[in-house]
Amino acid sequence: MTSVGPEAGFAADARPACGSCGTVYDPAAGDPGRDVPPGTPFGGLPDYWRCPGCGGPQHGFTVAAPPGADPMDLRVAALAASYRLIAERDMAGVPICNAALSVEALGFRPHGPGWIGCVIAPWFLNAVLIPRDPALWEDRRDGDKLEVGLPSGAYRFTAARVGVLGTLAVIPLASAMNVFADQQDARGGAVLALDHLMRNPQPAPRPEPPPASDADATKPALSRRSLFGGGRR
């Protein structure tokens, strides 16, 4: 059964369980012993938080997904919800943010080990690769480089840990977000960037033959007879 973290469209009071030991995180209680106050949703846990029962990672906690839910849609929703939480908690009023923009995930499609698309936020525009297996890059630290092949070539992504999604692979596409007038403008930039990344390279055009000289024009054209010695004998 597919399962995801509570950021993926689930209520803030969802009680996810550790897949390894069964420990349940209760947002009403929090985890005061680890400086997590009561009322903290799972999506608001600090990066250092681990399962109190077995020390497992956050991405090991799951809640059952609705029947028939698309895993990609759930992961993308979780990604957008995680960045919305960051926007509300940490980035409100920060000068680098473009107040005309909001968090939005768009263009996601299957690729390689997961799903790739773009995320718009008031402070960045990134291409993001979400792994199907949240543990795929668990040995990588934030900022580590990952080389991933895309249709247009090989790119160096940056590792970024995001809660229950595990470690994502990210390419910064724009950091000065004031270049975008509004959300629609930012969407256009995201679509163009993703189209470039996911487009197969076109073969180089064949060079045009040099123009024939007057001397060449007087030469007889090649024929089957001239190539194979005058035909039958």
Rank of each mutant, 00 (worst) to 15 (best):
A78P: 02
E104S: 12
F108I: 01
V162I: 15
N98M: 00
S223G: 10
D90F: 14
A174N: 12
K219M: 09
S3H: 06
G117T: 06
P209R: 08
P6S: 15
L222R: 14
A100H: 04
S223Y: 04
V179Y: 02
V179D: 13
L136V: 03
R75E: 08
G114C: 04
P131D: 02
P71Q: 07
H196K: 09
Q183L: 11
C18S: 12
L222K: 12
R187M: 13
L222N: 09
M1R: 12
N98L: 06
L168W: 03
R75P: 01
L129N: 01
C97P: 01
A174Y: 01
L79Y: 07
V4L: 14
G112Y: 08
L106S: 10
A92F: 07
C51P: 15
W49S: 04
P67V: 05
G56H: 06
L222T: 14
D142Y: 01
P41E: 11
G68N: 11
I96M: 08
Q58F: 05
P16W: 01
K145R: 15
G229H: 09
I86S: 04
L194M: 14
F61G: 07
P27T: 09
R140Y: 07
A92K: 15
L85F: 14
S152A: 15
Y155W: 13
R232G: 11
V119W: 00
T62M: 06
A14R: 13
D144I: 02
G93F: 10
T158M: 04
V119D: 00
D73P: 00
L85A: 05
G163I: 01
D47F: 09
T167E: 04
V36Q: 06
A77W: 03
L173H: 07
G39D: 11
C51T: 11
G229S: 11
L106C: 02
V191C: 02
S102A: 13
A65M: 04
D13M: 12
P151W: 06
N178C: 01
R156S: 13
V170H: 04
T2V: 14
L168Y: 00
G33K: 08
L165T: 03
N98D: 08
F228C: 07
R75K: 15
L74W: 00
S20R: 15
W137C: 02
L146N: 04
L101P: 08
L79M: 11
Y155S: 13
